[in-house]
Design a protein around this nucleic acid. Sequence first.
DNA 1: ATACAAGCTTCTGTATACAGAATCCCGTAC
DNA 2: GTACGGGATTCTGTATACAGAAGCTTGTAT
Lengths: 228, 228
Amino acid sequence: MDEALTAAASRRVARPAPLRQAVYDALIELIINGSLKPGQHLVEAELAEHLGVSRQPVREALQRLQTDGWVDLRPAQGAFVHSPTEEEATQLLSVRAVLETHSARGAAQNAKPEDVEQLWALQQEGVDALADGDVERLVAANTALHAFITSVAGNAVLAELISQVTRRVRWYYMPIAKPRGKDAWNEHAQLIEAIAKGDADRASEIMRKHTERTGEYRKAIAAAAGQD
Amino acid sequence: MDEALTAAASRRVARPAPLRQAVYDALIELIINGSLKPGQHLVEAELAEHLGVSRQPVREALQRLQTDGWVDLRPAQGAFVHSPTEEEATQLLSVRAVLETHSARGAAQNAKPEDVEQLWALQQEGVDALADGDVERLVAANTALHAFITSVAGNAVLAELISQVTRRVRWYYMPIAKPRGKDAWNEHAQLIEAIAKGDADRASEIMRKHTERTGEYRKAIAAAAGQD
DNA sequence: ATACAAGCTTCTGTATACAGAATCCCGTAC
DNA sequence: GTACGGGATTCTGTATACAGAAGCTTGTAT
């Protein structure tokens, strides 16, 4: 736990930047890495002391963490680390699939030649990472590709929702994260082709199947890993 | 402005319930009814005094208002009432259509006989209100019908996103709110029939067209009203 | 007249302090 | 041994206090 704390503390003295943001990031980190366990009661004073700040920024961070689905805030009782359930994971994946599908449609409608070029560049990065067996780069490339498609779609509201949902989805499968690999990137290539042609129906259909497959894949792995 | 303030103040002494919620509600009310204008700088101390509370609950309310899209929070500068744009309205309507469409699909897959019965009851309520020319009841029935469809879909994540997006959409067209009327309720009837049959594809298709039409309708009215 | 800079004012961001609710612990009664 | 109740404790929710940044005002120089 201490590393995260010192990180936040040093960030504090370094800049006059909003402290609650550092707390927000630190707490997500602690939740993701398991230092704070699902259902655990988060006592504001404790967090404040550990992070070297007052209760105020902690409270504000907790509020945002609630709206982002990381903690539950029970009135007069405080914050509790949200307990993920299989059901909620399914719901998140379902919603994400719908949003990403819409995003692909928008991208196909709006993509300019330079956008397509950039998409192919990201695709190449992913394929290279796959060939090198560099998992970290692979995950980064995947994230970048999806994010860029969303940005091409040009719908800020959509982009924000996708980012929100994706972050939450990621949490569930964090401990067993394992990219799907070759198949996924073949699907990406087909997707980019459809976007390049401006074929919105085909692009959205490919994305729908793509995200649904990814969801199924993750759930299968989770089941195999015996994750709650 | 004063009514909202006294309301919040009285709510304060009345219960030990979370004060920030009252502030949150009061501020949305003030934004919707135009007391707080788009772009306006919201000074925490002023709001706190007017509402008869300290800055603390105000700050926490502002945070949530930001994540819900009502205000923009600029670091070291404070909160500003969010300025709605035509573009953002279009994006919200687009996202809402996608989410509602998915909701209709889920409802068709899950609907039990008693759910269908309840849907028809809500439909009847809407038709009655339409016949009576009771706009308020009509809007309420419409909201209830859509909400019930979402609840039948049984996806809590989806439900929350829809509720969030719908609230924001409503703001844009608040000043010129005017239900679409007969056509909309004919579409509702077809939708319920599809749900009753468990025809997910048809249900989602009807909902897609329905929400898109409603969106177009609202935009047309807004344009006619010369709204920014 | 305009551009610039120093000082002041205002406001946010953070910390500390206080009041009351919820919970827990322990003793007592049955 | 178990159920109940009172008191202490802990924690949240709210209020007040303080430090520093951002913006405005005013005066000066070009």
